[in-house]
Design a binder for these strands. Sequence first.
DNA 1: AACGTGACTTATT
DNA 2: GAATAAGCCACGT
Length: 123
Amino acid sequence: MFKQKVIEVVNNIPHGKVVSYGQVAAYIALPRAARQVGWVLRGMAGNNVPWWRVVNKKGVISINGNFHADRNLQKKLLEAEDILVNDFQVDMGKYRFIASTKLLKKLQLSDNYIQEAISKFSI
DNA sequence: AACGTGACTTATT
DNA sequence: GAATAAGCCACGT
């Protein structure tokens, strides 16, 4: 299930780190399903999922005053993990979490795809 | 089955 | 850079 995989990836983001939607999508072998990642996360508020560690590619909090969740809450949660949030933006170069090959293997990705996925988001 | 909707991304101008 | 356009795909109607 798409939803389950998203949850698994998000649950593996360490404290104090963030990932982008596209990153999560790439980690579940659907590199172009970034929107759906957000769609899943939309329903995750209140669950035991660190949804606030997911931001868009620029490191900006992608919530725009929706009623589901608000960006001030996300900002607050990030800051609670010692992540600097400046004008709803975090420094991706500093805080981006790069998945380990171990984790990606666990997600049943092929070896060559793993290399691709990792290099894509590395500096 | 068809269509609209995005907590997105990429390419183009 | 900003604005635009076009992909993208799970999901509800």
